[in-house]
Design a protein around this nucleic acid. Structure first.
Lengths: 238, 238
DNA sequence: AAAAAATATTGATCTAGCGCAAATTTTTAC
DNA sequence: GTAAAAATTTGCGCTAGATCAATATTTTTT
């Protein structure tokens, strides 16, 4: 599994990646080993620990990224300090692609939800990559589509659903994007606090805690500190 | 003024548009008259009355559009009938561009907020247009960027701001996108009901009405049936 | 001209869930 | 090993704003 390979690299701290490490990821699909080598030569490897940021909102969008391993939270902070988490990025996905919509600066902050690895390239290469590498172009479109859909769903959720349902929807979304099967059920594969969930749903950590406690009592989820396992997805009131 | 020209065409119901009608719109920038002629030959002209739809969410995305005149509301309807307005489109902007993010179906419904005119082309032509016409490509990116920003702002607003502020922000946004100077102040240039505003802000028409009445009493806005004029933008609690 | 349909206003309840507070458990730092 | 910090749970009171309801006004239909 590539996943394991990259994770081991993360641990080891090596700075070299092999074509076989990434060739299964969609942006690198349909590329020859030589082409991947070329891409790798131009890339910068980023290893980040949980909570470190790749870039902050407002910064000049000098690079675009592909996440190889880990999970990312992308969000904004309002003037009065409210944190809003807009979407999550899982491995294989592009992020920081301001170039794709003609934007000179990042509009959000990308922060690692777990330790992770990403590659980046200077934004000047964007157009060339899109032109030369079909997989890249396709991945960019998919990333845009994914993002668009996610944002739309969130707007609908925030505009129409009450707290319990919003939380349920957020957890189901994460489950689909970052779910890992365990004996108990499907676990969300990165640390996730009540506060994080409330930042995704526009509520308070208190309300999230109450909701989760209720679901736990009914056997719908199992959740300890920073860990969320969904036992009965169908029973969530989404 | 192109605007007037197109509006007169709208009224007259003619089905022919001249290059001079559209050449000032960004997607047609940097094109020769011959190229524009070619685009026009391939285009279908749509005239819609207020409240008619261009397409509905879920439909196959067979065409993409450019709005020549009028204003559009783009939104969704939830299972339990709640209307959510996601964004507004003003003239010169592309819409229905599911192709740009690799989507086979429209994810939202586009409905005319005022009488309007649009052009459409079959989705198959998208890639060719993007390749051949630089202005088109640029306009597509701008449309994506605009949409992204708008959705992000809406998520932040919905997640963090109380009703009064959300309404204020929505009105300011519309004012910027569709504002027309009058002696009283800046008028939002299409019919806009309390219900419409509540569908944009995730609240009820009652709350919107109370807000607007308050602002009117303080001279911040002037508003009658379907008409909103912002007199003191700075005084809105956004 | 009358009736029906949209739109808007305003008042009177009622409650979801926020804000505050206090206690508990888990993790990290020293 | 102890202290400090981070994360969670739970209770209680309060209020923003939804819901229900009634009326007014404007527009459209017949």
């Amino acid at each position: 599994m590539i996943m394991n390979r990259i994770q081991s690299i993360t641990a080891a701290g090596t700075d070299r990646l092999l074509p076989s490490d990434v060739s299964a990821l969609s942006p690198f699909a349909d590329l020859s080993d030589a082409q991947i080598d070329e891409l790798m030569r131009l890339a910068t490897v980023h290893r980040v620990a949980r909570d470190e940021t790749f870039f902050d909102e407002g910064e000049r969008a000098d690079n675009f990224y592909i996440l190889l391993d880990g999970f990312l939270r992308v969000g904004r902070t309002t003037q009065d300090g409210d944190q809003v988490i807009m979407l999550h990025i899982s491995s294989g996905q592009m992020f920081g692609i301001a170039k794709a919509f003609d934007c000179a600066r990042y509009t959000m902050t990308a922060r690692a939800a777990s330790d992770g690895v990403a590659l980046s390239w200077p934004s000047e290469l964007w157009d060339r990559f899109i032109q030369d590498y079909p997989g890249f172009k396709a991945a960019a479109r998919v990333a845009l589509g994914h993002r668009m859909k996610e944002m739309q769903d969130r707007v609908v959720s925030l505009a129409t659903a009450r707290v319990e349902r919003r939380i349920a929807q957020a957890i189901l979304r994460l489950m689909k994007q970052a779910g890992k099967a365990t004996e108990d059920g499907i676990e969300i594969d990165f640390p996730l606090t009540r506060q994080d969930i409330s930042d995704m749903t526009g509520t308070t950590l208190h309300s999230v805690s109450r909701c989760m406690s209720g679901w736990q009592r009914r056997g719908i989820v199992r959740s300890e500190r920073r860990r969320v396992v969904v036992c009965e997805p169908e029973a969530l009131p989404a």
